[in-house]
């Protein structure tokens, strides 16, 4: 049987899943009588199946890093604003810069890191272990910030505790009336540029109360 170009066209339309019911019947009835078209259809279906069987590929492991390292460098001010938006709770820590208290050189860790403690009251700084201890029976009135060290609370803290680059431990008898915030993965540059930080923050310190719990990251 001779094939019309219509039949050939229908084969592709059929493979595209765009035939009407009528066209489907028309094609089916044609291929029962036309081995050439039947063969073509079968071969095309196999071809498509083989192409589809190709495995999905994976980009190399370092792909994302490579792309990110090639992005144009951003001005630091932008970076900072974005970072600030993502970590609003840090503003809490910033307020403690307003009153500077104790800074101790520590041999703990790389030697160039300091344990910085800010708080009102009696506490012990255990340099060897890198731990700030609030001893049993002692009461700290106000907020406490520990940077680059851990804190162990055996006494009482009437206020919030913020631990930056460290961990906290609350003994069974210890008490903290406020919140305990742990801030790790601190960006080093933030501290190196503490002055800018301070200036930027002053204006927003007063209206940050509602945002302190927004630890989106």
């Amino acid at each position: 049987m001779a094939c019309s170009s219509d039949d050939k066209r229908l084969i592709h339309k059929y493979l595209d899943e765009e035939v009407t019911l009528l066209e489907k019947k028309q094609l089916e009835s044609h291929i029962t009588k036309c081995p050439e078209c039947e063969e073509q259809l079968q071969e095309l279906r196999k071809t498509v199946a083989i192409i589809q069987s190709a495995s999905h590929m994976k980009a190399p492991d370092d792909f994302t890093d490579n792309v990110m390292s090639r992005l144009p460098k951003q001005p630091r001010s932008t970076r900072w604003k974005v970072w600030m938006k993502k970590h609003p709770y840090l503003i809490t820590a910033a307020t403690f810069f307003l009153v500077f208290i104790v800074s101790l050189q520590s041999i703990w860790n790389e030697g160039n890191k300091e344990i910085v403690v800010k708080g009102d009251g009696q506490f012990i700084v255990d340099k060897e272990r890198g731990v700030v201890v609030i001893p049993e029976g002692e009461t700290i009135s106000g907020d406490l910030v520990v940077r680059n060290g851990n804190i162990e609370v055996e006494g009482e803290v009437h206020g919030d505790i913020t631990v930056i680059n460290g961990e906290w431990y609350l003994a069974s008898l210890g008490q903290v009336t406020g919140e305990i915030n742990e801030i790790n993965q601190m960006l080093e540059w933030l501290w190196y540029h503490a002055k800018e930080f301070f200036n930027d923050v002053v204006s927003i310190v007063d209206n940050n109360n509602g945002e302190n719990n927004d630890k989106s990251e």
Partner: peptide
């Protein structure tokens, strides 16, 4: 668009395999 360059890494992660596949 707001300037969070690091967020772009998430887009790369989402589409890297597909884009790489097309290119390959």
């Amino acid at each position: 668009k707001r300037g969070d360059q690091q967020a772009f890494a998430e887009l790369v992660e989402l589409y890297k395999d597909k884009v790489y596949q097309v290119a390959y």
